[in-house]
Design a protein around this nucleic acid. Sequence first.
DNA 1: TATATAAGTCAATATGGTTGATATAAATAG
DNA 2: CTATTTATATCAACCATATTGACTTATATA
Lengths: 158, 158
Amino acid sequence: MVDINSQDERLNAAMELFYYAYRAFTAQPDTLLAARGWGRVHHRVLYFVGREPGLSVNTLIARLGVSKQALHGPLRDLQEADLIVATPAEQDKRVRCLSLSPAGATLENEISSSQRVLLATVFQDNGSDAAQGWQRIMTALAAHDQSVSICPNRRPPA
Amino acid sequence: MVDINSQDERLNAAMELFYYAYRAFTAQPDTLLAARGWGRVHHRVLYFVGREPGLSVNTLIARLGVSKQALHGPLRDLQEADLIVATPAEQDKRVRCLSLSPAGATLENEISSSQRVLLATVFQDNGSDAAQGWQRIMTALAAHDQSVSICPNRRPPA
DNA sequence: TATATAAGTCAATATGGTTGATATAAATAG
DNA sequence: CTATTTATATCAACCATATTGACTTATATA
């Protein structure tokens, strides 16, 4: 039988830990983007286009869960900076297929590699047992995600 | 020697995991607060006041990293809802000491207990080894937090 | 040919943050 | 006792970012 109060304390500590760890994890991408005067949406566009090259504007809107008007500003920024290219689809020339330019891929990689390096460091510093445990717990948590697929845009990702 | 690409894949998966796990973790508090038409600031006020009862308004502003004008709306909401009480300090009657009312403590507990329950569940389901590993990794990550103490308000916490 | 769809844009509006100026009450310096 | 500083609280102007609605253009399809 575990002492209820000490159990609660442990969980409270875990809650704080989660928050500060997440903040550390997201700090560097934010800094890299903010340097260009860009925000979360730019980051998320780069992220989603990087992971699903050739997706359409409407698909991206669905992925991000924002209105098209909210997307177009950042999307245009990224196109004008030659980080995202939009090419008409062959079968249907109305739809624009979005993908990362080489420069866009470089930036996207720069951003996410800062996160990969951080993770790689802490995984290596704490041994594979800890890393595996972390993965198990996070997987279980992610499985509890109640969020709808076309996300309600209340709490933005990336 | 580890294959670089598979290593990157593992880290990419960890990045996604982190994001979805965090979203699952924060989903329920958001829902509970949104039901009252409230947002993150209300939550964070309840959280910080709950963990540091008797703190002053200026201290709270520093903890949150927002302007006093941005704080006062939500703070007034919470006072009018009798969730937060402000009592003049004995030594210096200018400063208001903020604390949770019984109702405020109840709500705060309701909010955070949804998170405690989620954590307790996944910790229990995955064994103490995994839980300990998670804690080690998250602690190491949190230690890398570069954020300044009076945070620049660019990337909001809680 | 008429209609529907994908993308892009303009306008009006809401929210939530900012800074600046000011008011009030209480503490403190001279 | 008076003057100044400090802690809190507002008011106003402004800005960024999101929303919805209406519309245009190009393309596809019935």
